[in-house]
């Protein structure tokens, strides 16, 4: 069963539209939604969470139409945690245990301790990293099976980001747990994701298992002339400078004489997005 299934999702705004987006996140997997700012990542996530009403398409979570009750099984972390600024950890616990049916105060306080968050200070005194950790603690304290994370690591320093990535890795040790995570920090997603989805200008440009992507595509350093001699469909993106031309290519469409190096997801995303432009 798929944790999330999106079929032909469309949503029109002034100057931007989400165009027939289809994504399937299998249960037990982590999918990274990668795109530049304004590509449509947040719009997809908002549609899944019911924050906006799609113009067309179908969304199902655990095989069913999303309902508010279903959010007991979903942990969400958005780029800004919406806790009132005067509230402290105890206030948050008092509220959440009366909202989530499976809220576990012990788990919550374990995370608070693990993250070294002050339990008596007001939320307004928290740093960006501390706020994000509190958001993650809430998301992980009600026995969620699915995490939906929108830019959870943006604005955080590398140490905190690494710590948070480890927590997400721990979460998916349970095979029934899944994560949909959006970010434009591709290196973070590369570390944890099983599936990678590229979104550009409101369209899905690529959706594939990460390992297959890394096998399928490669990186070459060559010249414009040599590149021009290749099959056009072999080149997924290129960048020319005075020392030559770098390109992301489809390995099987390039002669074996080429020195093809492994490509990173970040390179793949950058080169493909530039080509699309």
């Amino acid at each position: 069963m798929n944790a999330i299934e999106i079929k032909n999702l469309t949503k029109k705004f002034k100057g931007f539209s989400l165009d027939n987006v289809s994504i399937s996140l299998p249960t037990g997997c982590i999918m990274g939604l990668i795109g530049e700012n304004g590509a449509g990542k947040t719009t997809v996530i908002k549609s899944v969470l019911g924050l906006i009403h799609p113009d067309g398409g179908k969304i199902s979570i655990f095989g069913k139409e999303p309902t508010s009750e279903m959010k007991n099984d979903i942990g969400v972390v958005l780029d800004e945690i919406g806790i009132p600024i005067q509230f402290n950890i105890k206030d948050v616990d008092s509220i959440m245990k009366n909202i989530f049916t499976k809220w576990d105060s012990n788990v919550f306080y374990d995370y608070i301790k693990k993250f070294s968050l002050p339990d008596k200070k007001a939320f307004k005194t928290f740093s960006k990293g501390m706020k994000m950790k509190l958001g993650i603690a809430i998301a992980l304290s009600h026995n969620a099976k699915l995490l939906i994370l929108d830019e959870p690591t943006s604005g955080l320093d590398p140490l905190v980001r690494d710590e948070i990535i480890d927590i997400f890795n721990d979460f998916t040790r349970d095979e029934t747990h899944s994560i949909l995570i959006s970010s434009h920090i591709v290196s973070d997603l590369e570390k944890i994701c099983d599936y990678i989805t590229f979104i550009h200008n409101g369209k899905i440009t690529l959706c594939e298992e990460k390992d297959i992507l890394l096998e399928k595509y490669g990186f070459i350093n060559t010249s414009e002339e040599v590149l021009a001699g290749l099959d056009k469909s072999a080149v997924k993106g290129k960048k020319s400078h005075k020392f030559g031309t770098e390109a992301v290519i489809v390995r099987e469409k390039v002669p074996s004489s080429f020195d093809v190096k492994p490509v990173t997801i970040e390179e793949l995303f950058v080169y493909m997005s530039k080509e699309e432009k």
């Binding site: 969470l49 019911g50 924050l51 508010s68 009750e69 279903m70 959010k71 007991n72 979903i74 969400v76 958005l78 800004e80 945690i81 919406g82 806790i83 009132p84 600024i85 959440m96 909202i99 989530f100 049916t101 939320f123």
Partner: peptide, 19 residues
Amino acid sequence: TFDETSRWDIYSLIIPEKR
């Protein structure tokens, strides 16, 4: 107004509560 400033208005939509 406080809710909107702190983004609680959005947060309250991602918890299991009907609008």
